[in-house]
Design a binder for these strands. Structure first.
Lengths: 401, 401
DNA sequence: TTGGTACGTTAGGTTTCCTAACTTACTAAA
DNA sequence: TTTAGTAAGTTAGGAAACCTAACGTACCAA
């Protein structure tokens, strides 16, 4: 720890305040950071020279008189950020300014059968295209990628990607870094979705929460103490393995009694088809259609089979939610996945019975964009070091007259 | 962030190395910390003046020649630490040096019926006694207290202490701080037990692990990212509420299907008594005796009832352990409680069936001292600030000749 | 006895921050 | 229109911590 570190820490402090507040004067920065006015002036001079900060007009002078403040603003166009998501239907890419505001995007259809190499090719081409189109290629600061499966964020490798993709040890980070030469973050899509809720969703400012996603698979993203928790084998939140058939550990539980097998969307569809009454005037459920919309339609027509299936699903999901709540005592549980809209009320009621303290259980508001928003937040974090690196040569500029 | 902060940070860095390594010379400190020799000399001079560090003999000179190093040592007797535990049978107090080595202790029998006020009186008296006996009262740096129930460590208040103590909102921290005028940490005994395993047990150096304690109640302490995680309502790890009777959320589950009700030691005793074969030559199980020892004796005599009961308990505990493993993906799970010695093997086997990655499941080695050891570690952490506060006046001492 | 090596100290310079005083630009009231 | 008051931002000087480079000290080995 030496003088240079002090300067960097103070630069980060100043920039954090500046990014958080929007327009701030030097004097107010001094008040907010606890640093003195000369220090702020010197630091800000360096930032302005590098272009990270710009002067942006005059503020209203104090009512009692006094020189009006010169307002400063973080220059969100100093660089740009990229986020990408690989899912079973497409590769999506977003480009955003340093405040995370998306200004361009691109989606390329893919299928898992294309294989890891080809899908990554699509991703790289897609990235290149948006960067070229926007003319911001030179300013790119960082990239974050939401990938399927179990990911080691330290190495940026997809260790294994479940039933759909059949990836093993795919080094996404290296591939992308080699092509763009900027820092790259890779993580699981559910984890990024949780970060998305934290950055710009329901969980803003929440220290401890869980995002549970329901789909073909079932997974959870855990945020503990304001940070993503991935687990020792990057498998934290793999609640598909939760055991439903309690009071016993019989071998058949391994195939029958696990949460994912019981209430994954494929199984729910089967159950609906099996139980469907065939009532006149009720639409026939079809494989391939939107499961949640279909169930909602059945419910509207007063179809009993749908309501019975949903009751069962709600009951089993409630067990998982209640157990997570009991173990982790989060402040909030966010439910992501269309089906949850139909059963959130029932889950709240059932969980409320077993958990003796108040707990918010909410439906995600970000929908399909959650992972990309979280990835963008992560890209923003990665870019911090580049932005905050304060150049030493700029110290103590002569006054401008 | 200013010059004074730099000095403090570097002082902490140096002292951490010194405490970790034992005997170190100034030159080696420079190498280990990355600071320069003059900086180390200056910092160390201040520490020696304050008595926090002492010179302790000469080291062996380098084989190639050269002046032999003067070895430095952290002065573990610069102050002392206290830890206390309140349990249903006694109030225990330990006194230790700054390295956490206990040099005096005291146990006072109490019963929960005495009430919070009286039990705290006993604790205070006990603390005063050991401090007086050792003559170290003036040097006391901090106190940590393992209390029963749900504790808010920020305020040091026992919010509620379960079935045994019937405490509500007992401000332990204030009471003790007012009496001794040193920083006081209060936390739940299971949490401190987990810290104990981390400081000086099986979990040394483990980032993510869970300690599960079985007794009348069942609770877990969660260490995530090397830090205790208490939850948003200080209820993390309250796995007594886990739901055993799956596939349903029927109302009767609330009394019948919760983990604590099913496998708490009281219930296990009932089960043993109910199932006992009354076989000749087998000792009769008696209420009040040591449950684990009794079960072990029954097993030795080949009693079938005991083995059936244990199988059931193991099966149900396994569900809880497997679920925690699936959700939190810890590196290690530590089992604390006598009963676990009889069923750990079975738990390992059952959990191994559902969790597809390797996971260590071990019996706690610290036994009844775990919570006190963890509390002592916490007291040591609290004392850091006092120890590391580097005095400004000592800068740049003239050379001694 | 001499050269080599490593420990720890001294001297001098750099960087950053702080305090105090100053200039600048505006309001409000005489 | 002038004058006093207030707040923003700059300048000047100094303090505190660090660093580099060189030096004195104590030991080994030939």
């Amino acid at each position: 720890m030496d003088a240079a570190s002090i300067r960097k820490l103070n630069a980060a402090l100043i920039l954090d305040v500046l990014r958080g507040k929007g327009l701030v004067s030097r004097a107010e920065l001094a008040r907010l950071t606890g640093l003195t006015k000369p220090t702020i002036s010197m630091q800000v001079a360096g930032m302005i020279e590098r272009g990270v900060v710009v002067e942006d007009g005059a503020g209203a002078p104090d009512a009692r008189g006094g020189k009006p403040p010169v307002l400063l603003r973080f220059n969100q166009d100093w660089g740009c950020l990229a986020a990408a998501e690989i899912n079973s239907a497409s590769v999506r890419v977003w480009l955003a300014d340093l405040n995370g505001r998306t200004f361009d995007d691109e989606a390329s259809p893919v299928t898992p059968e294309l294989g890891a190499g080809h899908i990554l090719d699509v991703l790289l081409a897609s990235l290149r295209q948006v960067l070229k189109r926007s003319g911001q290629g030179q300013k790119l600061c960082s990239i974050a990628i939401a990938a399927p499966g179990r990911v080691d964020p330290a190495t940026g490798t997809v260790l294994e990607a479940g039933n759909v993709f059949h990836w093993r040890n795919v080094d996404v980070k290296k591939r992308v870094e080699d092509n763009f030469g900027v820092p790259v973050a890779v993580d699981n899509d559910v984890n990024f979705a949780a970060l998305g809720e934290m950055h710009s969703g329901l969980a803003a400012g929440v220290e401890n929460f869980i995002l549970i996603r329901h789909g073909t698979g079932i997974g959870a993203g855990l945020v503990i103490g304001g940070r993503l928790y991935q687990g020792s084998h990057f498998a934290a939140g793999e609640i598909g393995h939760l055991i439903l058939d309690r009071m016993t550990m019989a071998p058949e539980v391994l195939t029958r009694g696990l949460l994912e097998t019981a209430v994954g969307s494929d199984r729910v569809r089967e159950k609906v088809l099996a139980a469907w009454s065939g009532q006149a005037g009720v639409p026939t459920p079809e494989p391939g259609a939107d499961l949640a919309a279909e169930l909602a339609a059945l419910l509207r027509h007063g179809d009993e089979s749908a309501s019975l299936v949903l009751d069962e699903v709600a009951s089993q999901m409630s067990i998982a939610v209640a157990d997570m709540a009991a173990m982790l005592d989060p402040e909030l549980i966010v439910l992501a996945g269309d089906l949850f809209a139909l059963i959130a009320g029932r889950i709240r009621e059932l969980v409320g019975r077993v958990i003796p303290w108040p707990m918010r259980i909410e439906l995600s508001a970000l929908g399909a964009d959650a992972a990309l928003m979280g990835a963008m937040g992560s890209a923003r974090g990665l870019a911090r070091d580049l932005i905050y690196e304060s150049s030493r040569e700029t110290a103590r500029l002569p006054a401008l007259r």
